[in-house]
Nucleic acid binder design. Sequence first.
DNA 1: CGGCCAATCACCCTATTGGGGGGATTTTGA
DNA 2: TCAAAATCCCCCCAATAGGGTGATTGGCCG
Lengths: 208, 208
Amino acid sequence: MGKEIRIVVIEDDQIIREGYSILIGQTEGYTVVNAYDSFDNAAKSICEDNPDVILLDIELPGTNGIEAIPRLKRMLPHAYILILTVYESEKNIFEALANGASGYLTKNTPAARIVDSIREVKDGGGPMSVNIARMVIKSFQRNQESPLSKRETQILEQIADGKSRSQIARDLFIDLETVRSHIKNIYLKLDVNSRADAIKAAKDNRLI
Amino acid sequence: MGKEIRIVVIEDDQIIREGYSILIGQTEGYTVVNAYDSFDNAAKSICEDNPDVILLDIELPGTNGIEAIPRLKRMLPHAYILILTVYESEKNIFEALANGASGYLTKNTPAARIVDSIREVKDGGGPMSVNIARMVIKSFQRNQESPLSKRETQILEQIADGKSRSQIARDLFIDLETVRSHIKNIYLKLDVNSRADAIKAAKDNRLI
DNA sequence: CGGCCAATCACCCTATTGGGGGGATTTTGA
DNA sequence: TCAAAATCCCCCCAATAGGGTGATTGGCCG
């Protein structure tokens, strides 16, 4: 048989924390080695717990879950961090993932799914609630109703890559003046008058 | 009772195509209204099928799945597209999602999970196989072993936003010459000598 | 304690760039 | 056939970018 998966829970609500601990601990192959009510309390001894997977809440007293992620990563570089929270704000999700979380579950997730997700994350998967996944997928997609033409979008992309007009002209095999003309039209349509503002407008409206 | 979910399958392998059709059609609430062996054949009549969800393979004769997505989106703006493929290359995944796919499953997915995913995507979820989700999550994360200091990373981000030195100086409340100095160090460390090359190096190595 | 690196600021130089005007022509798609 | 898209052309000039060669102040680490 394989080794037990060592789990630490960091969750401020006592009921939920103990609920998780009992629930997961009952499952064959899973051991909850410790449970804390805050990152600040966990920081002192979590290294000795040597967890494989950390279940982490976002809303915590003191250091919040988002800030805790990089610090946990430094303390336990090989541990996987699984966010388990009621929060579904885009900002939280993307910050948590960017900070090094390996999965993101909302608290309405059924117990069996949580247990599965712990296994999945250990096996190199990236468990997410479907509503979270929807937001993540949406972040890859562009605005369909872009005011820009294909060519203009293409040139705006190159501007966002930091290229100069002449570089863009060379890369697209068109004249420098044509690039200029396109950029003027882009500025007109986006109502801006600089590269930086155009890039900002484009990112805000998912045009690139 | 709720309406039946109308499904179209586009898959070139006959065995798999018919397997899906039978399997999904058996499930209460799901109707496979049509199945095609290529997008090019589907294009002619898929509008009359009026599907809610399209199961789409990537590897198809003629127009491939990736290219088919935006065209399907134009023909059926309200249909959800669920990619169902053996391919797990990062390029395929990100292109498919960027083109408008709402989910991405690999073909080893159990039948029950496929049926669930159809329901999920209709309900506004974003079903993904866990291995796909892992790659998507990884795409949010930065390289930990960046050669750049915090300040340098911060300034490189602003450069990627298209800001000029003087804008950066104003935004960070530091002198123009300090910004210059940081940029010189960034160029040294990344072994480049222009904004465009620095941005490219940074994106390639996930420094920003 | 000495050395390293990050972060800050300084002044030299010049070619390139960017943005604001004013146009025109051809190609393409609905 | 008619509008939008894509192409190219000229004027102007301030701002910018990048190269060189420095200095100074901290903090951190062995």
